[in-house]
Design a protein around this nucleic acid. Structure first.
Lengths: 161, 161
DNA sequence: AGCACTTCGCTAACATGTTAGCCATATAGC
DNA sequence: GCTATATGGCTAACATGTTAGCGAAGTGCT
């Protein structure tokens, strides 16, 4: 690799940094037969007792069509239950089963433990910095960001030249 | 939503922050009929003239099995070519076609332009902070991070209780 | 040469991401 | 009441992520 990328891609750096952390948690999660997303959902329900699908989408950063599949697989595994709400027949409530509660009770502490290990390895100051700067990106109140105007679409793919 | 998540999940914050940025670029990329990953790959090849698949994997944060599919689709679209190396019949060289070069020449400046808009909206200081802190996470020389020991695996999924 | 060992890209199987759009249910306005 | 609109979860179709493992090609050692 002779030279570095001249243009530094922020989204890509996020991806890389995220992986740098996640790779230390993934073994724990898969050890229990869960996927990363399934664990995120269990954690969220653990916090809120019960959640509606769209809330899970927002909390866990999962798009609705993905969530549908994840939830039905988790239902099959006996980890969650889905019940329609009486007041509003469109909405659904997702809850944990006792089995899932036991699972969370075992898995959760291990994640916390590994987190402490990572915090020491990376340095608590860096972790703190991360929280601060990520919050600035996420929670900041910004006006609407203008979208540059796009040229008329050409059919690159079909075009043979 | 009555209360906030007590435990803050760093990988998830990364995901959220990344999306906060990416959502402003995605429209541009899809406007040209590309996916985010295809664009990452074109950018990388644009920088290095030619790359081998495993180099692309590393640069673009794409796993090898994913890349296989992405590249063959891009080959079908006439965006890249794959040629086996003479010296080492295992290895492959990936290059852009003229069509892809034109595409990059059109798309690249738009990305840069949108990037400037975002930099202003977020504040150049914040962007700079991001680069610094992400670099600390990614490029830092750390010793091997210990992995906590896992309990014997139980068959949660099959277990009925 | 012959052998064990590694490397590289690949396939397979499954889970998730992404976009578009559907259908039933609620809600607002008339 | 009745229509127009909005909302919530869903399906469908395709692209990618993730893990395991395969087969051919190179390497090092004897």
């Amino acid at each position: 690799m002779s030279r570095k990328l001249a243009y530094r891609n922020l989204p890509q750096l996020f991806l890389r940094a995220r992986e740098e952390l996640l790779c230390h948690f993934r073994p724990i999660i898969t050890h229990f037969g869960l996927t990363e997303q399934q664990w995120r959902i269990l954690r969220a329900i653990g916090e809120f007792e019960q959640l509606e699908p769209r809330e899970i989408c927002e909390i866990c950063q999962i798009l609705s069509p993905s969530l549908t599949g994840v939830l039905s697989r988790m239902e099959d595994m006996g980890l969650v239950t889905r019940t329609r709400m009486e007041e509003d027949q469109r909405r659904v409530l997702v809850r944990m089963t006792p089995k899932a509660e036991k699972l969370v009770a075992e898995l959760g502490p291990l994640i916390v433990e590994q987190y402490k290990v990572i915090e020491q390895a990376f340095g608590p100051e860096l972790i703190q910095e991360l929280y601060v700067v990520l919050d600035k990106v996420i929670a900041a109140e910004r006006g609407p960001i203008p979208q540059i105007k796009l040229p008329p679409r050409k059919n690159w793919i079909a075009d043979e030249s």
